[in-house]
């Protein structure tokens, strides 16, 4: 295989990473933007989504496409419900104080990990893809499912954008983000908004996980890398800026994939983590964010 096709293959693989990263990171960014909460347990919501998808496909059975569609519908709902509960029981009582919520979400991270280890087990298990169709390119065959992941992720992102900009609920969320107290003065129940945003953020991570689980496998420690990459993406894109987050996800997903493909995955992560630290130190508004006062 020549260099051109090789590069194309690397690009396509990286695009799948970028697509799921965009979903995960937008979830994290939304939670940070509206609630000012750094959710360290975000990667575990991703993991829970994948594990839930495994349980759902195994208990429903039937043809793979049907089981997968059910997982895609139900797993994010289940994870969103867990997130809403966590918000009500823990984060709300802390009054969303930034440092306290980080400690609390670290606690949640361990609780979710242990729950997955106890109920799901230490092994990695795959979910059958909804269809096994290979697109034959001149140089190599490529899984059609992986391409559909990119498409589906893009559709979900457009859906989120429409929801935030065109619906009443989205307007309420944006109003709460801009000024919580004024929103309250206008009769908005910000507690409910926060619970909904936290659930939506977790649900987006879960959707990304359901999409990726036929390619990767479900494992109780799988939340670690998505969390780190999502953090990097959100910070590089500008904390709380959704457009910046999506652009950064594409950039980081592609470059991470390419460096990992041609050099070493560890080197890619070292560079990315250092980049993020430097961005936060020297350009805290993010590479794409505008400086706000």
């Amino acid at each position: 295989m020549g260099f051109g096709p090789f590069l194309l293959l690397a690009l396509m693989e990286s695009a799948v990473t970028a697509a799921t990263l965009a979903l995960t990171a937008v979830g994290l960014s939304l939670v940070f933007g509206v609630m000012r909460v750094v959710n360290v347990a975000h990667g575990e919501f991703f993991m829970l989504g994948a594990v839930a998808a495994w349980f759902i496909t195994n208990f429903i059975g039937g043809p793979p496409w049907f089981a997968f569609l059910m997982a895609l519908a139900l797993a994010p709902l289940a994870v969103a419900a867990i997130a809403a509960l966590a918000d009500r029981l823990i984060l709300k009582r802390l009054d969303y104080e930034p440092e306290a919520t980080i400690v609390a979400t670290i606690g949640l991270l361990y609780i979710f990990q242990q729950a997955a280890l106890s109920f799901y087990g230490p092994q990695a298990m795959p979910v059958e893809p909804p269809f096994n169709f290979r697109i034959q390119l001149p140089w190599f065959g490529y899984s059609a499912y992986k391409l559909s992941v990119i498409l589906l992720a893009a559709l979900v992102l457009i859906g989120v954008w429409l929801f935030l900009t065109r619906s009443k609920a989205g307007l309420v969320m944006r109003a709460t983000q801009v000024d919580r107290e004024t929103a309250q003065a206008f009769g908005i129940d910000t507690d409910r908004v926060y619970a909904a945003v936290f659930a939506l953020g977790a649900g987006l991570a879960a959707i990304a996980a359901v999409l990726i689980v036929p390619i990767a496998q479900a494992h109780y420690l799988m939340g670690h890398d998505p969390l780190l990459l999502a953090f990097i993406t959100v910070i590089v894109g500008g904390l709380g800026s959704l457009r910046g987050t999506v652009i950064a996800a594409i950039l980081i997903g592609l470059s991470d994939g390419l460096i990992a493909f041609f050099w070493s995955p560890t080197l890619a992560k070292i560079l990315a983590t250092l980049l993020v630290a430097m961005v936060l130190v020297f350009r805290p508004q993010g590479l794409f964010g505008a400086r706000t006062t």
């Binding site: 930034p98 953090f231 070292i270 250092l274």
Partner: peptide, 24 residues
């Protein structure tokens, strides 16, 4: 480097440095 930031940013910058150290 990290002390040029404060609060949540400081937490994340230190976390990232530690992660880079671990990966190295």
């Amino acid at each position: 480097l990290a002390l040029r930031t404060a609060g949540v940013s400081f937490m994340i910058v230190t976390l990232m440095f530690a992660q880079a150290g671990y990966l190295s």
